[in-house]
Design a protein around this nucleic acid. Structure first.
Lengths: 357, 357
DNA sequence: CTAATATGTGATAACGTTGTCACGAAATGC
DNA sequence: GCATTTCGTGACAACGTTATCACATATTAG
């Protein structure tokens, strides 16, 4: 379906076909020709190739080039979370594909110091990001958590913002997310389905909606919450290991544990082989599905967050807003997917050597 | 900024430049060349021309033409809701703009009869829609409420589905919506802000999340719920008028009313001028913002649902799914906008003639 | 040391469109 | 009726990219 094709069908030149179809005030020498061309076009249901047109006109210039800022929130006292790095990589790839320029990637940690509160450190960021007026910014993509206060300041400087995985409950800024509560509920429900009744939680209990999901899932499975099974901690590998040792020391350790985070789970799994005498190997499930989670031993069962879709949709929302599409706040929620690997066992299959020795 | 340009700058061929920039595992004969090319590319900040690429790969094919079904759910015992008609009109427009073919618009009411349950009537629909195998369907857009059971059946026949304004809480199908509860909360909160304390509700109380929002807003404003102020009814104009008469008959009628629906509000407003002796004119707010709501007298204050954005995003999601973009369920929530017209008054401004005579 | 293979290179041809140009035919001028 | 203008036509180049091919060189085998 090209002009060439029609030209061959009708015996006229490509140029003439193009003129007949595109130039409304074009007069054919013979009306016969015109009819034949239109007929042929209809027959093969000709549609002009937008790419060729844009290429020729130079107009397409891949839409226009937008200059996008990226803000990756990470705080000085937190160790890196690979999940965000993987999101960032994917995002950079997607931006390039869409012909956008990444004008700046701003890692929050570089600007914060131990004393500065989160909001303050973001204040510094804003000053730094938008200090030089010479540079044009078309939009900002935020990866990770940002306080409401910081966001409010940010919005005064930048109108086109989309956040990824911020997990807020209010409409403050365009947002793409996986509902943490839902993710956790799915994970814990899976453990319950496997027959586990003593299910532990490792992770932040205050700022993390995943904890809520854990509680909800217990309630849905008619399991009484047990505070001994909740290990409130910041999400990093070391703390996962510490949590393991804590659970192991209990009189009746949980037979299964939900870690809010792959990193925590990986830390916990590292404990499995550490001690000689007693072996305590609970079923472990977590959420995120970072690349590393398939290289642990046992391989980690986890709720996979759709990284690719998240960044693609985030960019989609941002570009729509930049181009004047939607003015209101929109919020795109994506489903997680349970990836069953090796780290969870059916409760009834637990044998002595795997549980206690 | 083209490969050619870089080639001229560096003295190598276009082919080589292309390979260096695109093929990650390309080995240059001299590292010198590679460096010069990358340097030149950086210097002119080279960005690949997406149009040329798509043209070459033939991939772009100006979209392809998709054949889309539309299902507008409406039930025999319900009168028409203009909101859905307006959504449909907008959707048809958007589909045409995107080069899609509307293969069928299916009004549920035509197939349902008084006796059939909702699910059954949808069963009939499915048979009818997908009976003729000759026709190719690429996707289905559902406008309005569909029961979970019906959706499950529908999903066996059609993989690419997006629903608009279904307002479900689960992940069952791609969905674009305005959270009914949130919308109602915003409306009622506005009435509370105007100083009203006796706030009525008109609409469905069982299948409608907006009722939940009404209750939540009352609680947030520290107002005790009063069952006398809740008028449970199906959403149509006549019932709006009936609700007006009901409220008017109360000893202490509400000074403000939230109607779940513009249609209900319009019916209620029609009551204002009907009687001679006593005049009861409560503040009225509703949600949807159908076209008619700006032609009432007084003009209706309402929470506007972003019809255009809803259909645009719905199509965006559907096309992404059709093209193999996302496989998981996604759910796009949009904000409503308070449109202040004339039908709401500050409580303190209420004078005798406006309230009771 | 020659023969065979591997490997990077540059010229060239597409992809489908539109703009430019020269050509021939028709219409107009004197 | 000849010179001039108008006008539709077809050939061809260009947009920026990538794939294919032949070629020259570098590497390896015998």
């Amino acid at each position: 379906m090209s002009l060439k094709e029609i030209a061959q069908m009708t015996g006229v030149s490509v140029s003439t076909v193009g003129r007949i179809l595109n130039d409304p005030k074009h007069k054919c020498s013979s009306e016969e020709i015109r009819k034949r061309v239109l007929e042929a076009a209809r027959k093969i249901s000709y549609i002009p190739n937008a790419n060729a047109r844009k290429l020729k006109s130079g107009d397409g210039r891949a839409d226009e080039i937008y200059s996008i800022n990226i803000l990756l929130t990470r705080f000085a006292n937190e160790t890196a979370d690979p999940f965000y790095d993987e999101l960032l990589m994917q995002l950079e790839k997607e931006l390039r594909n869409s012909g956008c320029i990444i004008s700046n990637v701003w890692h929050n940690a570089e600007f914060s110091d131990e004393k500065a509160s989160r909001s303050e450190s973001i204040g510094t960021l804003i000053d730094s990001l938008y200090a030089d007026d010479e540079r044009r910014h078309d939009g900002l993509i935020i990866i990770g958590k940002v306080t409401r206060r910081a966001l409010r300041v940010l919005k005064t400087k930048e109108k086109n913002i989309v956040s990824i995985n911020r997990n807020s409950t209010n409409y403050e800024v365009d947002e793409v997310l996986c509902d943490g509560s839902r993710i956790a509920r799915e994970a814990v429900a899976y453990l319950a389905r496997l027959g586990h009744t003593k299910i532990g939680y490792v992770g932040d209990c205050h700022n993390e909606s995943r904890f809520t999901g854990y509680q909800a899932a217990l309630a849905e499975a008619h399991l009484a919450p047990d505070l001994d099974y909740v290990f409130d901690t910041a999400p990093n590998e070391t703390n996962g290991l510490i949590a393991y040792d804590y659970f192991k020391g209990l009189d009746e350790p949980p037979t299964a544990v939900y870690c809010a985070n792959d990193i925590l789970a990986i830390g916990m799994i590292k404990g499995f082989g550490k001690r000689r005498q007693k072996v305590y190997i609970p079923s472990v499930i977590s959420s995120d599905d970072i690349d590393a989670s398939q290289y642990t031993k046992p391989m980690l069962t986890t709720i996979s967050l759709p990284k690719n879709d998240m960044v693609r949709f985030a960019l989609m929302l941002l570009l729509d807003r930049i181009r004047g599409g939607h003015k209101i706040v929109s919020r795109l929620e994506l489903e997680g997917t349970l990836i069953i690997r090796e780290s969870c066992r059916n409760y009834s299959e637990l044998t002595e050597p795997e549980y206690y020795i």
